[in-house]
């Protein structure tokens, strides 16, 4: 019983943290590419980066929504 919960906590932690980190990292990468001086079309790269940051923020907010009991009553 307790072990199942432990696995659950570990899984949830990994899932949440990995989602946030992956999305944000991709965002950082796109920003980096967009910042390259020799790149010819950096503009859509930049917006793609913002999309990633946005998705990351949404993921965090969704996580909070799941956790705060006020929203789940």
């Amino acid at each position: 019983m307790k072990w199942l919960e432990l696995v659950q906590v570990a899984g949830a932690t990994l899932l949440a943290a990995a989602t946030v980190v992956v999305l944000y990292s991709i965002g950082v990468r796109f920003t980096a590419i967009a910042g390259d001086p020799e790149q010819s079309a950096p503009r859509w790269m930049k917006s793609l980066a913002y999309v990633c940051f946005g998705l990351c923020g949404v993921a965090v907010l969704f996580g909070l929504y799941l956790i705060i009991p006020y929203f789940n009553k």
Partner: peptide, 16 residues
């Protein structure tokens, strides 16, 4: 920090 926050929130939510 992402790991810390996820671990704390997940565990306190799942009762651990």
């Amino acid at each position: 920090e992402s790991s810390t926050a996820s671990a704390i929130l997940a565990s306190s939510h799942l009762g651990f």
